[in-house]
Each structure stands twice: as structure tokens, then as C-alpha cells.
């Protein structure tokens, strides 16, 4: 374990939603750290709680119906859970920023880019007018938007999806945040644009020293740009590890299944891409034991009855009774 204090520290976080069918625990006791300046992948399939986690960090769980019922989120040692709204607003966009999945709709259609960027700058950096505009142009240039002094006066609908996502990145980084939450930032984009946008995020992260939490289900993106990854399944963290060991030697059977199902150039021709059998359990009717047990080839009686606790070893954590790669 590194002696340096983590930038963000999430401990035993529980988020619950009241639905018509009952109380749903979207996140059930997750703990992880984000270190200064690192890129951490938050991986998992749809509905596993990735986005809820990032919204929880920003204090934006829609309430009602959702709320954080237990646990803590600390940014540089400062507790964020239970922070008054007025204090939280000062953090949003300045210390923690977020990029959303849908660049088409995430910007306000009836205001110019300049107007929206200046709002953020005047809110957090107290710079206005010409000065704010210059700063915004500077940021747009940094994210690789051609002729930013002209583009800044345009409306979002005049820009392409990739350009809009760049504007979002520029806006998110304009107040020098310490942490950037990127919720599937490239999912809605073309593959070529995806690569460019990711490249931009990674490049800026190095330049500005911002830590990034990259929420995605795209393992390829994670492998390329993250140092560490957290794998989530049905509201829990099943494994967290540095990237290379995680991809080379996944320990949780779920991670192993994910890695196996990545399309890749293989030595032998396979007729069918391997998949993980079964489906994700309904969050309303979770199994008593390990949540992955029903789909796991290694599962035994104990897996169905007890929840496995985290085993920490060599900088990695896995929640499994029968981790792969161990006898």
C-alpha cells in the first residue's frame, strides 16, 4: 500500500432507491480509493452501479427516490456524505468535475458554448467577461478544437458529437479539478472519434495532473488508458487491481469471464466468442451468498450461502472464495 493519502476514498458506501416494487440497493457497501493523478477504470455491465457510484461522489443521487444510507466518501480527507448543498455546490465543477455519456444532450441547446463555459468560470474562479472568455478559448484550444475563437460563439447543435464532447471536457477541466469523473465519455461516439477523445483525456490528465475515474463497460478503453481498475457486479466490487495483472491474470471468475469475452486476434480460430452464461441477478431479489454464484463455474455450497469478503494481496483485492490463478 502506498503511504501517500488517496485523493478520494470511498468506504462501505450504500445507495438505496425506493421503487414501486420495493427498496433497491443499487450499491451495496463498496470501498475503493483514487490516488492523486491516476486514471482508474470503473468497469461493469449495465445496471451494476457504475453511474450511481459517480453520481454519489458528486452528491447528485436523485432524491427522492435515491439516497446514500451508509458509508463515507472523502475527498482529500474531507467528508462529502452529509455535506450541506451550498458547500457541495462549491465542489461540483471545481474540485470534482464530470463528463457525461451523451454529448448530444448534455449541453444546453439554447445557449452558446461561450455562455455556458463562462458560467462555470465565473461561478468557481470568479473571473468574468473578456477574461473568462479568453480562458474558455484557451481551454477549447487545449482540447483540440480548431479555431476556438470562432467556435466558442456557436451553439451546441452546430458542433459534431466529438466536438461537443471536447467542449464538455474543456468545461470540466476549466477550473482545474482534482478529480474528473468520466461517465462513459466515448460510448456515444464513432470509433475513430472515441480514440481521439480518449487520447485527449489521457493527454490532459498528464498535463494537468487530474485524477480520472473512467466509468465504462469498454475494457479496451480501460486497458489503454487506466492504471488500475475496479470491477463491479450487481452493486458490489468483485475485484480491484492494477491493469496489467488484472488483464493477464484476472482472479475473480467474473473478471475472468469479462476478459475472455473481449474480441481479439487469437492464435486459433474460435467459432463463437466466449460469453458468461446466465444473466445479472435482479437487484430486488439478490441471492444470499455471492451474487455471481449462479453464473460461476467454480461455485460451491459455500458460495451460495455466504458473501465472500475481500482478500487483499499484492495491491489487489478480490471478493471470492475460489479466486482463479490460485490453487
Amino acid at each position: 500500500m502506498s503511504s501517500k493519502k488517496p485523493l478520494l476514498s470511498v468506504r462501505d458506501l450504500v445507495v438505496e432507491f425506493t421503487t414501486e416494487r420495493g427498496l433497491v440497493r443499487a450499491i451495496d457497501g463498496i470501498s475503493f480509493d483514487v490516488r492523486h493523478g491516476e486514471t482508474m477504470g470503473l468497469v461493469g455491465e449495465s445496471g451494476c452501479g457504475k453511474s450511481v457510484t459517480s453520481l454519489a461522489i458528486l452528491g447528485l443521487i436523485p432524491s427522492p427516490p435515491g439516497r446514500i444510507t451508509a458509508g463515507s466518501i472523502q475527498l482529500n480527507g474531507r467528508e462529502l456524505v452529509g455535506l450541506p448543498e451550498s458547500e457541495y455546490r462549491k465542489i461540483r465543477g471545481s474540485e470534482i468535475s464530470m463528463i457525461f455519456q451523451e454529448p448530444m444532450t448534455a449541453l444546453n441547446p439554447v445557449f452558446t458554448i461561450a455562455n455556458q463555459m463562462k458560467d462555470v468560470l465565473s461561478r468557481h474562479q470568479k473571473i468574468r467577461g473578456k477574461q473568462a472568455k479568453n480562458r474558455a478559448i484557451e481551454m477549447l484550444e487545449l482540447v483540440g478544437i480548431p479555431s476556438p475563437d470562432k467556435r466558442i460563439n456557436e451553439y451546441p447543435h452546430q458542433l459534431s458529437g466529438g466536438m461537443r464532447q471536447r467542449v464538455m471536457i474543456a468545461m470540466a477541466l476549466s477550473c482545474n479539478p482534482k478529480l474528473l469523473l468520466a461517465d462513459e465519455p466515448t460510448t456515444a461516439l464513432d470509433v475513430t472519434i472515441q480514440a481521439q477523445v480518449m487520447e485527449q483525456i489521457v493527454k490532459l490528465q498528464h498535463e494537468l495532473g487530474t485524477a480520472v475515474v473512467l466509468v465504462t463497460h469498454d475494457l479496451g478503453v480501460v486497458a489503454e488508458s487506466c492504471q488500475r481498475a475496479v470491477v463491479m457486479y450487481a452493486g458490489r466490487i468483485v475485484e480491484q487491481a492494477p491493469i496489467i495483472p488484472l488483464f493477464k491474470n484476472p482472479q475473480h471468475p467474473y473478471s475472468a469471464g469479462l476478459m475472455a469475452s473481449i474480441p481479439r486476434i487469437r492464435a486459433d480460430k474460435v467459432l463463437e466468442l466466449p460469453t458468461i452464461p446466465g444473466t445479472v441477478p435482479d437487484l430486488l431479489h439478490l441471492p444470499e451468498g455471492c451474487r455471481f454464484a449462479d453464473r460461476c463455474q467454480y461455485a460451491d455450497d459455500r458460495c451460495h450461502k455466504e458473501q465472500p469478503s475481500n482478500k487483499i494481496k499484492d495491491n489487489r483485492e478480490v471478493a471470492c472464495f475460489h479466486p482463479c490463478g490460485e490453487a
Binding site: 458528486l58 447528485l60 455546490r89 462549491k90 465542489i91 461540483r92 465543477g93 471545481s94 468535475s97 464530470m98 457525461f100 451523451e102 444532450t105 448534455a106 449541453l107 444546453n108 441547446p109 445557449f111 458560467d119 462555470v120 461561478r123 468557481h124 464538455m168 468545461m171 470540466a172
Partner: peptide, 21 residues
């Protein structure tokens, strides 16, 4: 709408959200 969520994520005050966004 999504852009309202964006504004929230950038620290906009609810009153500002209502009147501007």
C-alpha cells in the same frame, strides 16, 4: 433534461438552474 443534470454537476444553484437552464 440531461443539460440540467450537467449544470447541476458544475455546481449551478437551483434558482440559477430554474431561471437560466
Amino acid at each position: 433534461r440531461d443539460h440540467v443534470r450537467t449544470a447541476k454537476a458544475f455546481g449551478a444553484h437551483p434558482i440559477e438552474l430554474l431561471f437560466k437552464s
